[in-house]
Design a protein around this nucleic acid. Structure first.
Length: 749
RNA sequence: GGGCCUGUAGCUCAGCUGGUUAGAGCGUUCGGUUUACAUCCGAAAGGUCCCUGGUUCGAUCCCAGGCAGGCCCACCA
């Protein structure tokens, strides 16, 4: 046995052993009880971060534990195409080469993206492997492979047939920069200071930060109880506006806060969610003055074609000339929605989108949690979940990006002459209504150069994965990432009729970071309930976010990002895994526990040396294989430290089982650490080695060998590499028989 | 504006349904080559458990209020 434990060498050897033995391939015909975890798929083109390490450490711990406890344990690995994020990264690379996505048609761009992602995909897979994750690679799934697309398309079809899908003009969060819609979950509110303009509308004055949207005003609103404006309600006011003589109706709506500004609100249904809803209540016209290109539309009259901010400046000028600008409050602080990743500006726009009606799905998703079919750990996160699901509005599932699963709709160009398309014809971007374009271009030309298509809400469409005929153009929107990843447990297990699905579904635990409980967990529960009638997992365990060593959020600009590979290389994978596990207990965010990683590196060394010493003593006393393997600790004499140690070990196993059952990972780890180090090494070994009576000493050694090797089993799910390596050494020296520790049974006590 | 979480040794964190000297790792101090391990062994110092009040025989743990930090949700133009 080597004098030192060289984790780099040993980890590689152990990995090879597991792989050669195909140790983690699960069998639905095993006849055992299944235990299943689906790995939350990391970004396929990304790199592993410390959060992934914690996730893998926890899930591997559970899986290895249950596997040893006699379950047929399945852990399904996968990677995510990460629609928006990957496309953003890729476009950044294109920009370096002086290109952009507008230089390519949709199909070409998609293929380039696929190549880009596939070329990067190996890295994260290798990193998962290097962590010692006992995943079943034979079941590896990528979110954009055929299997995934088929499931998603079928689900969509079913939802369309059951009336759960509709198309609507709806105010969505739209990013001009990325040219796509964002879901509410992808935006955050940011505080900023903007001028608040007080603008005269005839006898009334309205306060607004966005004068340019006045071009889309279709009413003025006041609170029904506001005495000041009582007489105006229901009347039409006529006034000189920047576009000439204008007339607007004054309506009364509870939404209006009399205390804000002047108590009069200009209603712009096309460019504000709230106004949109007021508009619905009062049957107001929707006048869209800002287009998806970030410029004013033709409805903006003389301002058409101007960029939003230029238009704002011009309107302010024009209002001044007109004498309609009462005053400007320069220090107005308010919150605006921005892109949660980049904090980029988000515009609220009305565009046709695909929606899911969530009323029914919400109910199912709430019920399974309320009635305890799904248990959330830590328990208090249940409140976050329930509140969010209760308040969920219909879900906009279409995204105007290429990298994702295309919404499988097709439009017949003859039936829908008014769809707008953008396509590439001999290097030129052409945009227009399809009926016009068909006079100049062949449909094949449009189809092959297609970049994007916008169909009106009432367009006829056919749902199909492949083109239904010659005269069709495809929808170019793709699904929101969460629409497909919400079906991940179903996709990976081969819903609806595979052997795996029947045996392994529903899964046992979903383990992930709390920050995606709303975005992801809720959607998985919805889809699981909707499609199978059962929630996709029994327990949800939410871990906290790993902060930098200084306790702050990791960020490149602060330079405090922790690269797990460095720790893996320096301290060993086991130490990194267990250090992180023992650094957190109840799902709270926590600072990266560097000291704990160090402590468990030392622990690895301790274990290695305990084994060396044990082997040395055994050889010294000339104990044979038979001596050791025939040893029965339950025959030990009462009142001896030997029996005491054995009892201590039994208690340890008990404590570990209990803690793991309650998802108290760090407790379980602490129990083992202290038993092995303080009890077994510092007390027991020290005591046995100086025993005078040879028979006592031999008995002690037998017992020591027994307890130590069984401790390796209990420690294995936490620190799989060193335990497997030492286990191999014990076999080699004849102290135990067996083969792989990973496939050994948990000690029965 | 609503809601959630946190505040325990120098640092990072445990402390399960309230009960004798409040724990761990790291750090600090002192002392150690005794059949493995200096990534080790032995010992020690270090805490008004954020503050105030309440419930209780008894509170770090329960309740109320406050202070401080973090997060989530929300339509105030």
């Amino acid at each position: 046995m080597d004098k030192r434990y060289d984790h780099k060498v040993k980890e590689a050897e152990v990995l090879k052993k597991w792989e050669d033995a195909k140790a983690f391939t699960a069998d639905p015909k095993s006849g055992k009880k299944p235990y299943t975890i689906i790995l939350p798929p990391p970004n396929a083109s990304g790199k592993m971060h410390v959060g992934n390490v914690l996730m893998i450490a926890i899930e591997d711990l559970l899986i290895r534990w249950k596997r040893m406890k006699g379950y047929e344990a399945l852990w399904v690995p996968g990677t995510d195409h990460a629609g928006f994020e990957s496309q953003t990264t890729f476009e950044r690379e294109l920009r370096v080469k002086g290109k952009s996505r507008f230089d390519y048609d949709r199909d070409t761009f998609y293929k380039m993206m696929m190549e880009f992602v596939l070329s990067n995909k190996g890295q994260i897979e290798e990193q998962i492997r290097s962590m010692g994750a006992s995943v079943d690679w034979t079941r590896y799934t990528f979110t954009l492979e055929e299997k995934s697309i088929n499931t998603v398309v079928n689900t969509f079809k079913k939802m369309v047939n059951e009336g759960l899908i509709y198309r609507s003009d709806y105010v969505v969060n739209y990013s001009f920069k990325y040219g796509t819609t964002f879901s509410d979950a992808e935006t955050v509110m940011k505080e900023q200071t903007d001028p608040l303009y007080y603008i005269k509308y005839g006898p009334l004055t309205v306060a607004t930060v966005r004068p340019e949207t006045k071009l889309g005003d279709t009413a003025l609103a006041v609170n029904p109880r506001d005495e000041r404006y009582k007489d105006y309600v229901g009347k039409e006011i006529v006034f000189e506006d920047v576009t000439g003589l204008n007339r607007l109706k004054v309506i009364a709506d509870e939404y209006v806060d009399s205390a804000f500004g002047t108590g009069v609100l200009k209603v712009t249904p096309a460019h504000s969610k709230d106004d949109y809803e007021i508009g619905l209540r009062h049957g107001l016209e929707i006048k869209q003055v800002i287009g998806t290109d970030g410029k004013m539309t033709s409805l903006a009259g003389k301002y058409a074609g101007m960029k939003v901010l230029d238009c704002r400046a011009q309107i302010v000028e024009d209002l001044k000339k007109l004498g309609s600008l009462e005053k400007i409050d320069e220090s107005y602080v308010h919150t605006v929605p921005v892109d949660y990743r980049t904090e980029d500006y988000i515009e609220q726009l009305v565009i046709p989108n695909w929606f899911v009606r969530v009323e029914e799905l919400k109910k199912m998703a709430l019920d399974v949690v309320k009635n305890g079919d799904v248990r959330i750990f830590p328990k208090w996160q249940e409140i976050t979940y329930t509140r969010w699901v209760e308040n969920m509005r219909d879900w906009a599932i279409s995204r105007q990006i290429v990298w994702g699963i295309r919404v499988p709709a097709w439009y017949n160009v003859d039936e829908n002459p008014d769809i707008t398309v953008t396509f590439l014809a001999e290097g030129e971007v052409v945009r227009g209504q399809v009926s016009d374009l068909l006079r100049r271009y062949d449909l094949k030309e449009i189809s092959s150069g297609l970049q994007s298509l916008t169909a009106p809400n009432n367009a006829n469409y056919v749902i199909s994965k492949e083109s239904p005929g010659d005269r069709y153009l495809p929808e170019t929107d793709t699904f929101d990432t969460w629409f497909s990843s919400g079906q991940w447990p179903l996709i990976t297990l081969g819903y609806p009729d595979s052997e795996d699905f029947k045996y392994f579904y529903p899964t046992d635990v979903l383990e992930t970071g709390w920050e995606i409980i709303t975005r992801w967990v809720s959607r998985m529960i919805m889809f699981g309930c909707y499609l199978t009638g059962k929630a996709p997992f029994r327990d949800v365990y939410l871990h906290g976010r790993v902060m930098a060593i200084d306790g702050k959020k990791m960020s490149k600009s602060l330079g405090n990002v922790i690269n797990p590979e460095e720790y893996q290389a320096e301290f060993g994978t086991d130490a990194l895994r267990m250090g992180m596990i023992s650094g957190t207990a109840n799902g709270k965010d926590f600072a990266f526990p560097r000291d704990k990683v160090l402590a468990y590196r030392n622990f690895s060394n301790k274990i290695w040396n305990m084994a060396r010493f044990l082997i040395m003593l055994v050889n010294e006393e000339g104990l044979t294989k038979k001596d050791l393997q025939d040893f029965k600790p339950w025959n030990l004499q009462r009142g001896t430290t030997d029996l005491e140690m054995y009892e201590g070990f039994k208690k340890l196993v008990n404590n570990v089982d209990k803690s793991l059952g309650k998802y108290r990972f760090s407790d379980a780890g602490d129990f083992i650490y202290h038993f092995m180090w303080d009890e077994l090494a510092s007390k027991y070994i020290e005591e046995v080695k100086v025993r005078e009576n040879r028979e006592d000493k031999i008995n002690g050694l037998k017992n020591l060998a027994y307890i130590f090797s069984n401790c390796l089993k209990v420690l294995h799910p936490f620190m799989p590499f060193i335990t497997e390596a030492v286990w191999g050494e014990l076999i080699k020296e004849g102290l135990i028989k067996g083969r792989l520790l990973a496939k050994t049974e948990w000690p029965g006590v």
